[in-house]
Write a protein that binds this DNA or RNA. Structure first.
Ligand SMILES: [Mg+2]
Ligand SMILES: [Mg+2]
Length: 1225
DNA sequence: ATGCTAGGGGTGTTCA
DNA sequence: TGAACACCCCTAG
């Protein structure tokens, strides 16, 4: 016996662990005590610094100079403060646990000998289903774990007889009798070694996608035989039968379908016998010989137990290190925190419920001096063991003793669990299978697949599972991020490369290591708190109850599994033969038989779309300032399925799939009886309506409300997932024609809705799949609402069930592109909020720096302020931001970019061009576990030559930890960030804002403006140009523009050129049929002279603009200065030292732009013609424009040279800068 | 092992 | 040499 054993055994099995009481009750409202050590370290973490500065001003820490970037105040708790508030179990009694084997069956079984068990999970072994759940031990009044082994589950096969005998590769005329089928099948079963079987002919229906199977009601031969007999291969057929269904159906599926078990619930089991087989680690075991004895309680059974029993939940947090010599991941610290008797429906947060903790640490080589002593004396003691094996044994002992029903983790199945399994195996830990609830001897760890099966009997709630990710809104799902956003607590991250420094045994004190242990320990609480906050267990339970699968499948599988189960239940009840579960190999085989189908069903990569989806309208781009009504169909696709009765049983599908273009089937006639899918969805929707009705009850308790809310959510999720699974080729109930029909109807409905709006003279400015954005053209809420209601009524009249509704009202909306817009939403009460969709600032590959910049610029654009002010503010902000960034005051955190790995890093064919792949490969080389779907953080740095990169060069991307590490030479590439992360998003925001210009914005940020001259893409011409200005008349627009003055070469006098007077204000014009004529001496002015004079004037306006003079509006100041930007718009007080005024540009971008537009307008023949069309002056203008065609075209050309008409009609500064250079000379 | 399609925006390669 | 295309990632619905 080695030393490790002794350590484990020194911990008595049923002793009240001291550590359970170590965490003291929270001290009410006492400020968190933060040790000096923590304060010192917190300098590393910018967020933590902020927090401490705010709450504890007297803590002496380094405070960085305030930056000019506005940062939201972070109101977060420090993790240490949280740790001290965790509650310990109240009394000794609570801590007394039932040892295995002490539960007596007479205290569990009912008086009539029946067993009541709330089943949670199962394990299937050779056709035997071992259900694991909780039973009430009346002796202790506690719910204890129990296992019921259900024997005697029979396979159910459905054999489809052929009408005529099939022989020699083709049909014959010989009719097939029942006896023929029976006979042939008897031979086949004999060949496969099936000894015991029964068969009978029954009527069943079929309605699915295999068109070689007769649809509708027909006769089938049902074959029943036990699971201990061999399986018949899928796809078996013979001369007298064409198909065999159900050959590979699992015992679990048969059990839940036949017994109508819908997810975790109380089961009434008759004839259960106590078993001593010890198949599980449960407190008590039973066996049942007939599955018919297992039944859920009837809904109206008064005596049935109703509530979910209390569960034991254990949150596991691990710390590992890579042993580079052996290339193995070893466990250093394991911490488990356990909550017993948890009512999952109770919304009380975990810190308010008692919990116990066990934390075990082992050294890398040796512990720093005094650690063992501190392990015992700390207020919350922990176990310091000498070796990893002892750690594992102690962990297993804790799991075995507490027997958790639920394991909560973060990235547990992804990495921690795998590492743990390998160590358990390698170090031959005692009774390793206690990690789950089933005793096992052989230890096989699957390399490719999931190893959850080794946890069978316990629910695994992993925060990084796909199901959890769907419930938690987060960009990275890192624990640190979620703790910050969902718990408002600052978690401290440790660079995994630094792990060994915490275990340094040459340190004089163990403080550093203890800190590390506490960080691991608190994570267990964090995980539990997050899972509780997002209500992971209650929601997944409801989903499971609706679908009728197993809870663990909902927690760790995809939604397709749930959808399959709900449909299996539904179709089984109605006596349908359902499609079999296909495995990849089988599918490919079938495809080959049918000829060279290029389609590879198994292909998991996201290929091209297989059918058309939602319709997206081309947005009418620009900033809209009249109320826009967002009219949105409620759950469009589920509603369509109901409205048009779209179902496997009702829609007639084309048989040949080889058709060039897949035809969209017709909707069934209206007298067709309701299909299964529409009915199922209707049931879900009606139940949801009922629940939502209950929720209106004002006297309902918060707990009840939250329960209903979850129910309501689960119903909605289930209804909405139906359509997606129709189109999912991996689903047993996949039906591309039905999916395509659903979306087709969606497109049709949206088109009709748009047409209806337009017929009502309402402009539809955008729409996506199920929504139309209607321009109400009004600017008050009541008016807008009135239009919305009228429109809603007219739309809804057209459908039985489909309903459009006003989803939001936008006071202002900036439409940038399809799926990209931002709006100021306003509600009835007049409160405003900003809604952003699809913009760069919503994406994880844009850093905080970028998001903040976008948000600020967007706020200005949506402010409703005058364009001129908006443009100025943007310029000022960008100038200041550029300076702040270059000064190095912005923390590294703000530069972090996130990107997800679509596959394992080494699988990329073009690794070199993707920054996140490069970073991932580097992490992997250092031993950090990196795999497909991980979100990789990185910062773009200067190259080794210190030069900026033109684009996001992959090899210049580094993990933030690499930059933070002391002694790092890495420098953030500020220019690259200012360009690709600030300028580009801002340019996209400003694209339709007049007066902003690419080069100018670039210049503000200190970037080379020459690189951002307007592009000459001619697709821009097509873009509608919507701003407030474009809606006003030319007269109004150009009222502030200076006139074009022409100097007469003959008389040297100057006169004003007023164009063609297209608006007909007065009759006198200097433009005659023979050209321009001097207003003073009537001498002709040469066309070239007019053009040159105009260009000279344009240049003078441009240079006026670029001199950038500003004027102060302060009383008696009027300072004219060119120094601007650094202090924003405050007057620098050169004239009046204490001036409080603000400075304004003397000549703005907008003024210049407008001036150029004016000059162009003077010579614009087309415009003159179109504005006079139909008026008395039309003929006159037409002859004028014809006679002076060349003059007009030349002058328009000159103006366009500066306006860059082919771009966005913005001033082209590229050539202007060259021009400025020339005048300086 | 796995819901769907539409679409923008980035990078890199290919082909006229 | 430039557009056309493929691929990757992320988001909207
Ligand atoms: Mg909708
Ligand atoms: Mg919508």
């Amino acid at each position: 016996m080695d030393v490790d054993e002794v350590v484990v055994k020194s911990e008595p099995v049923d002793d009240d662990d001291e550590d359970e009481f170590a965490i003291k009750k929270p001290v009410a409202k006492q400020a968190p005590r933060v040790p000096a050590a923590a304060a010192r370290r917190r300098v590393v973490n910018a967020t933590a610094v902020k927090h401490e500065v705010k709450r504890e001003p007297d803590v002496d820490i380094e405070i960085k100079p305030a930056t000019r970037i506005e940062r939201k105040p972070v109101d977060r708790t420090h993790w240490q403060a949280v740790q001290e508030t965790l509650v310990a179990p109240k009394s000794d009694l609570d801590a007394v646990r039932v040892p295995q084997g002490s539960t007596k069956s007479e205290n569990v079984l009912e008086a009539d000998g029946s067993l009541r068990i709330f089943w949670l999970d199962f394990l299937e072994q050779e056709g035997v289903i071992h259900l694991v759940g909780k039973v009430l031990d009346r002796a202790s009044g506690k719910y204890v774990s129990a296992c019921v082994s259900i024997n005697g589950i029979q396979r159910n096969l459905f054999v489809k007889p052929r009408p005529t005998r099939f022989s020699g590769g083709r049909e014959t005329d010989i009719e097939v009798t029942k006896a023929d089928v029976y006979q042939e099948f008897d031979n086949i079963r004999n060949k496969h070694g099936i000894e015991e079987w029964r068969a009978k002919f029954v009527n069943r229906k079929y309605a699915f996608e295999d068109h070689t199977v007769e649809h509708g009601d027909s006769e089938w031969m049902k074959v029943v035989y036990p699971f201990d007999q061999p399986e018949i291969p899928v796809g078996t057929s013979g001369a007298t039968f064409s198909h065999v269904f159900g050959a590979n159906t699992s015992a679990f599926e048969l059990l839940v379908l036949k017994r109508r078990i819908m997810g975790p619930c109380w089961l009434d089991i008759k004839g259960a016998e106590v078993s001593t087989k010890a198949t599980s680690w449960c407190k008590i075991e039973f066996t049942v010989s007939d599955p018919k004895n297992v039944n859920p309680f009837k809904d109206d059974d008064e005596t049935a137990p109703k509530d979910t029993p209390p569960l034991t939940m254990m949150s596991i947090s691990l710390r590992t290190i890579v042993n580079h010599r052996e290339n193995k991941t070893e466990i250093l610290v394991a911490s488990v925190r356990t909550w017993e008797g948890v009512n999952i429906e109770d919304p009380t947060p975990p810190e308010k419920q008692p919990s116990s903790v066990t934390t075990i640490v082992r050294p890398i080589e040796k512990f720093p001096p005094g650690l063992e002593q501190r392990a015992r004396s700390e207020r919350s003691p922990f176990q310091a063991v000498k070796a990893e094996r002892a750690l594992l044994n102690s962990l297993l002992a804790t799991i075995g003793r507490l027997d958790p029903d639920v394991i909560v983790g973060h990235n547990f199945l992804g990495s921690g669990f795998e590492a743990l399994l390998y160590r358990l195996k390698e170090l031959k830990a005692d009774q390793w299978s206690r990690i789950g609830r089933f005793r096992r001897k052989g230890f096989t760890i699957s390399k490719a697949g999931s190893n959850v099966r080794l946890m069978a009997g316990r629910l695994v709630a992993d925060l990084s599972s796909d199901a959890a990710k769907g419930m938690i809104s987060s960009t990275t799902w890192s624990l640190t991020e979620m703790v910050g956003t969902h718990l408002k607590v600052t978690r401290e991250d440790v660079d995994p490369e630094d792990t060994h420094t915490f275990f340094d045994h040459t340190l004089s004190t163990p403080d550093k290591l203890i800190q590390f242990i506490r960080l691991c320990e608190i994570d267990a609480y964090f995980q539990m708190a997050i899972s509780s906050r997002v209500q992971m267990l209650p929601l997944t339970k409801q989903l499971t109850n609706l679908a009728g699968n197993s809870w663990n499948l909902t927690l760790n599988g995809g939604r397709a599994v749930r959808n399959e189960f709900i449909l299996l239940h539904e179709f089984h009840r109605l006596k349908y033969v359902c499609p079999d579960k296909m495995f990849n190999k089988q599918k490919i085989k079938i495809v080959n038989e049918q000829g060279e189908e290029e389609e590879v069903v198994a292909g998991h990569k996201r290929g091209k779309a297989k059918y058309a989806g939602g319709l997206v309208f081309e947005p009418k781009r620009g900033l809209w300032d009249t109320y826009i009504l967002v009219m949105d169909f409620n759950s469009l696709y589920p509603s369509i399925i109901q409205e048009y009765n779209i179902d496997f049983t009702t829609v007639e599908r084309e048989e040949d799939e080889n058709a060039e273009e897949e035809k969209i089937p017709d909707v069934p006639p209206s007298d067709m009886q309701q299909g299964i899918l529409p009915r199922l969805i209707a049931t879900l929707v009606n139940r949801r309506r009922q629940v939502k009705g209950l929720m209106k009850d004002k006297s309902a308790s918060p707990a009840k409300l939250s329960q209903w809310d979850i129910k309501q959510q689960a119903l909605k999720l289930t209804a909405n997932s139906m359509y997606g699974c129709l189109g999912f080729s991996g689903s047993r109930f996949a039906s591309r024609p039905l999916a395509a029909l659903t979306t087709f109807k969606g497109r049709e409905i949206l088109t009709h809705t748009r047409e209806l709006a337009e017929s009502l003279q309402l402009d539809v400015v955008y729409g996506d799949t199920d929504s139309v954005f209607v321009n109400s053209n009004v600017t008050t809420y009541p008016e807008a609402l009135k239009i919305a209601n009228e429109f809603k009524k007219l739309v809804n009249e057209r459908y039985k069930l489909l309903e459009i509704d006003l989803d939001a009202t936008f006071e202002r909306v900036l439409l940038l592109n399809k799926k990209k817009y931002a709006a100021v939403k306003i509600d009835e009460a007049g409160s405003r909020s900003t809604e952003v969709k699809g913009l760069d600032m919503k994406r994880r590959e844009f850093s905080k720096l970028s998001k903040d910049a976008s948000a600020t610029v967007l706020k200005e654009i949506l402010s409703g302020d005058a364009t001129e002010n908006v443009v100025n503010k943007i310029h000022e902000y960008l100038t200041s931001l550029g300076e702040t960034v270059r000064s190095g005051e912005v923390p590294i955190e703000d530069f972090i970019i996130f990107k997800r790995l679509g596959k394992n890093p080494e699988d990329y064919p073009d690794k070199k061009s993707q920054p996140h792949v490069q970073v991932a490969l580097r992490m992997k080389a250092k031993g950090t576990a990196v795999r497909a779907h991980d979100v990789i953080p990185y910062v773009l740095c200067l190259g080794l030559d210190g030069k900026t990169a033109r684009s996001a060069q992959a090899d210049r991307a580094y993990h933030p930890d690499d930059l933070r590490r002391s002694g790092s030479e890495l420098k953030v590439d500020y220019d690259l960030y200012l360009d690709s992360q600030v300028l580009q998003p801002v340019l996209r925001l400003c694209e339709s804002i007049e007066g902003t210009e690419r080069a100018r914005l670039a210049e503000c940020l200190g970037l080379d403006p020459a690189r951002y001259t307007s592009s000459s893409g001619n697709e821009m011409q097509e873009r509608a140009f919507f701003t407030f200005e474009s809606q006003i008349t030319d007269k109004e627009r150009f009222k502030d523009a200076s006139p074009l003055t022409v100097r007469c070469p003959s008389c040297e006098g100057t006169f004003t050129f007023d164009g063609m007077q297209a608006d007909g204000t007065d009759g006198v014009t200097v433009l005659r049929h023979k050209g321009v004529q001097c207003a003073l001496c009537d001498a002709p002015v040469h066309p070239a002279s007019v053009a040159i004079q105009m260009e000279t004037q344009i240049r003078s306006y441009i240079s006026k603009y670029y001199l950038g003079w500003t004027v102060c509006d302060g009383d008696g100041c009027n300072a004219r200065t060119r120094s601007m930007g650094v202090y924003g718009r405050r007057c620098l007080g050169f004239v009046k030292p204490d001036c409080k005024g603000t400075v304004h540009p003397e000549y703005t971008d907008l003024q210049l732009y407008n001036q150029l537009l004016y000059f162009r307008h003077l010579f614009d023949a087309d415009k003159a013609l179109s504005t006079t069309r139909g008026s008395a002056r039309f003929d006159e203008v037409r002859t004028l424009t014809q006679a002076n065609a060349k003059l007009l075209a030349d002058c328009v050309g000159v103006a366009d040279k500066y306006l860059d008409r082919n771009g966005r009609r913005y001033v082209d500064l590229g050539s202007l800068f060259g021009f400025m250079e020339r005048i300086r000379l």
